[in-house]
């Protein structure tokens, strides 16, 4: 019993070691987003609070925390409060299986990939319930759009991950990263044999997190703010937290699945620069996270039917074909996991 309690305490410490930096990363990411989009618009972005506006995100967080949560009339109160929790819980739980470095992972699950799929598919409950419990038409419309979109793009995402697991021969994320190791550095990673799927995975990830140009669920110009239109104060902050944690999660996942996780892009024979390190993983994830912001400042919003067409008629067929291609690569030995 004592050993069990010790283990539980140790696990709790590890969970805190992941989730506290994650919350801070979300705060800094929102600052970085406003700054980057500002630069792309030839504006300054936030620059008043703290040096270079660095404390802007924290000022916003405290402002939201001290604001009142207004519950709409005739709203389903328990579900109204439950919805943000249901949105944020899977966004954090999925981090349990992300390997940051060789052996640095909270839970080295053998079903890690499936666990990720399970957790990301749970996130949609928060959105649906928020839309329904708010007792507002805009919120319900946003929730319906969002749920249909998330459910559609999940299929493309899942099929893309099937390609990865065919090549890696494992559902364990650490094994998937190790399967991308080899003498040739970045040419050994899965992005090369799975190039179309890699692109689809990240685009589907953008759609799955309801970000621009797939942000019809929020659609400020049509349905105000979609599913969280009735939320204010800390409840809104929790939705915000879930969305940004999911964006960072997708960035890390794309790095782990297709860009070799913590592996170095340079050949192992190049000395220190060729060694794997968590720094590489963070740099890759940062690049993807930056692309999220770049997309938002660049692309106009897709129309709803275009989103559905892209998901069902373009992405899913390509991924299904590529599962076959990946199977052939594996069967004929063109790709050998782990070299």
């Amino acid at each position: 019993m004592h050993a069990d309690l010790l283990l539980a305490a140790w696990t709790l410490a590890k969970i805190l070691a992941i989730s506290v930096p994650l919350i801070i990363a979300v705060a800094m990411y929102s600052y970085w987003e406003r700054k980057v989009i500002g630069w792309m618009h030839v504006r300054m972005g936030p620059n008043k609070i703290g040096p270079w506006g660095l404390l802007q995100a924290f000022a916003d967080v405290f402002k939201l925390l001290f604001k009142e949560i207004v519950v709409p009339a005739n709203a389903d109160k328990p579900l109204f409060y439950l919805a943000p929790v249901l949105a944020v819980a899977p966004a954090f739980a999925a981090w349990a299986v992300i390997p940051f470095d060789q052996g640095v992972v909270l839970a080295n699950l053998n079903v890690g990939l499936l666990y990720l799929l399970a957790m990301t598919s749970m996130g949609v409950y928060g959105i649906i319930l928020a839309g329904w419990a708010s007792n507002s038409r805009y919120a319900l419309l946003g929730a319906m759009r969002s749920a249909a979109q998330v459910v559609s793009y999940e299929i493309a995402m899942g099929m893309a991950l099937v390609c990865v697991l065919v090549l890696a021969g494992s559902l364990n994320l650490t094994d998937i990263v190790n399967a991308q190791a080899g003498g040739k550095g970045l040419l050994d990673w899965f992005w090369l044999p799975l190039l179309p799927v890699f692109v689809i995975y990240f685009v589907a990830g953008v759609a799955e997190t309801n970000r621009a140009p797939f942000d019809v669920a929020e659609g400020e110009s049509e349905i105000v703010a979609g599913f969280h239109v009735e939320y204010s104060g800390s409840a809104f902050a929790v939705f915000f937290l879930a969305e940004y944690a999911n964006m960072i999660l997708i960035s890390f996942l794309a790095s782990v699945m297709f860009l070799g996780g913590w592996l170095s892009p340079f050949p192992a024979s190049w000395g220190l620069i060729g060694q794997g390190s968590w720094i590489w993983l963070f740099a890759k994830a940062f690049a993807f996270a930056f692309m999220y912001l770049w997309f938002r400042a660049t692309f106009p919003r897709y129309r709803y039917d275009q989103i559905m067409r892209l998901g069902w008629k373009v992405f899913i067929p390509i991924t299904i074909v590529w599962v076959l291609v990946a199977g052939c690569m594996k069967y004929f030995g063109w790709i050998t996991a782990g070299a």
Binding site: V111, L114, A118, M122, V124, Y125, I128, A147, V151, E154
Partner: peptide, 24 residues
């Protein structure tokens, strides 16, 4: 593990979402 995660993926993540929609 596989059964457990498959239950969550299939029923919680997909079937019940559609169910919830219909009921709403």
């Amino acid at each position: 593990e596989f059964l457990a995660v498959a239950l969550v993926v299939v029923y919680v993540g997909a079937v019940m979402v559609l169910f919830l929609f219909v009921v709403m």
